[in-house]
Design a protein around this nucleic acid. Structure first.
Lengths: 221, 221
DNA sequence: ACCTGAACACCGTTCAAGT
DNA sequence: ACCTGAACACCGTTCAAGT
C-alpha cells in the first residue's frame, strides 16, 4: 500500500513458498531477533506474503516450531570416537548444544515424544551406544528416554542464559546475593553450603557422567 | 457498560486487590481453563477490574507465573519417613507432582535458578538428605542442581500429557505407529528395540533411582 | 486448485487522567 | 497516593472471495 510493485521488482525475485523455506526463515528470525519475534506474521513478511499463506504448509505456530527443532537437530554430528561412554557423552552434549542455540526450541522437545527424522537419528545412535555398553533392551530403552529428557532440559536452561537479557554471571550473582540474605534458621543447609552451591566447574559433563553411571547401576526391572 | 452497578452490588462485595489474591486467582484460572486462558485480562476480569490494575502488584505475566509456581510448591510435604534415599525420592516425586499439576509452571522453573521461598525450602530439604547420605559439600550442591532440573523437566513432560487435548495413551499409540513405519535400514535400533521402547513400567521412579545411584558413584571433582 | 485480503477475537503493557 | 479507561501496537487463525 505504501511502496508496492517497485520493491517487489527491485528485490531478488520472490522465492516460491514451501515448508522448507518457511522453516529456514523461522530459524533465521529466531536466531536474529529471538522467540518473541518469531510470529507467523513476521515469517510471512520476511517471505513477502501474508500470514494466511503460511497455513498451506504449516498447521500452526507449534507445528512450525516442531519442524524448526528437527531442522536444528540435523546439525548434530552422529559419529565421534573414543569409548562408547565418550561417544555417548559427545552425542548428548552436541544435541544439547544444537537445541540450546535456538531459543525456545528445547521447550518444544520437552513436551513430546521425539518423532522428527533427525531427532530419531540421534535417538537411534544413542540406543546403539547403550547396547554397545552391554545394557539389556528395556534398560537401554528407558535410558534413552531419560537422556533425551535431560538433553532437552539442559538445553532449555542453557538457552535461557544465552538469550534472555540477563547474562549467566549476572543471574548467578543475583542468586548468590539472594542466598546470602536468607535466614539461617529457616534455610540452614542453603546458608551453610552457599559456597559449594556456587562452586564453579563443568556441571554439564558431570551431569552426563551421573546419568551414565546411574544407568549402569540401575537395571530396569 | 451492559450490566453495571447492579451486578457489583449483587455479588459478594469486591475483595481488595493484592499480590496474593492475584496469584490465587491465576492458579484457579490455570487449573480450570488451562495455560491459554491465563491472561492478564482474564485474571483482571475475574477480580472485577481492568488489566492495568494488576500491574500495581505484579511486574508482568512472567512475574505472575513465577509467583504462581512458588505458591504451588507450598503444597509439597517436606517430611516423610524411610531411609534418606526413600525420603529424597518421595520429596522429588512430590515436587514433580506439585509442579505438573499446573500446566506451564514447570517451564517457568526450567529457566531460572530457584529463588522462591517454597522452592528454597524444597532445595534445603534435598540438601539435608544428600548430606545425610554422606556426600561432600560440592557433590551435594551439584546434585541438588541436577535433581531440580530433572524434577522440572519431568513435571513439564507430565503436564503436557495431563493438560493437552491428547491423552497420554493416544500419544504413545501414535508414536508406536510412527516407529513401526520407520525404515529399518535408517533406524535399525529403534526398529529392533521398538517393543522395549514402549515397555510399560514405573519410569519415573527408575529415573530417580538412576539419579541417586549416579550421584553416589560420581563425586564432583 | 491455489492463494490471500480482510476480518475476528483476542493479547501484554503503558500512561494520562481521574478520584 | 492509588487506581484505571482508553489506547498502542501487536497476536494466531479462519474464510470468503479472488485468480
Amino acid at each position: 500500500m505504501t511502496t508496492p510493485p517497485v520493491s517487489r521488482r527491485a528485490r531478488p525475485a520472490k522465492a516460491p513458498l514451501s515448508r522448507d523455506v518457511i522453516v529456514r526463515t523461522g530459524l533465521e528470525i529466531l536466531d536474529r531477533d529471538g522467540l518473541d519475534a518469531l510470529t507467523m506474521r513476521r515469517v510471512a513478511k520476511e517471505l513477502d506474503t501474508g500470514p494466511a499463506s503460511l497455513y498451506v504448509y504449516v498447521a500452526h505456530r507449534d507445528d512450525l516450531m516442531t519442524a524448526m527443532l528437527d531442522a536444528a537437530l540435523a546439525q548434530v554430528p552422529l559419529a565421534s570416537d573414543g569409548t562408547w561412554q565418550e561417544r555417548l557423552r559427545a552425542l548428548a552434549a552436541a544435541a544439547t548444544e544444537a537445541m540450546s542455540r535456538h531459543e525456545g526450541l528445547a521447550a518444544v522437545a520437552l513436551g513430546a515424544i521425539p518423532t522428527g527424522d533427525n531427532a530419531l537419528l540421534v535417538l537411534d545412535r544413542m540406543l546403539a551406544l547403550l547396547k554397545e555398553g552391554g545394557l539389556d533392551d528395556v534398560t537401554a530403552a528407558w535410558a534413552v528416554d531419560l537422556l533425551f529428557l535431560h538433553v532437552a532440559a539442559a538445553a532449555a536452561e542453557q538457552a535461557t542464559y544465552d538469550t534472555k537479557d540477563t547474562e549467566e554471571e549476572d543471574a548467578i550473582a543475583a542468586a548468590d546475593r539472594r542466598y546470602a540474605a536468607l535466614p539461617a534458621d529457616k534455610y540452614p543447609m542453603i546458608t551453610g553450603l552457599r559456597e559449594a552451591l556456587f562452586a564453579p566447574g563443568d556441571r554439564a559433563t558431570w551431569q552426563l557422567n551421573v546419568l551414565i553411571n546411574g544407568i549402569l547401576h540401575t537395571p530396569a526391572r
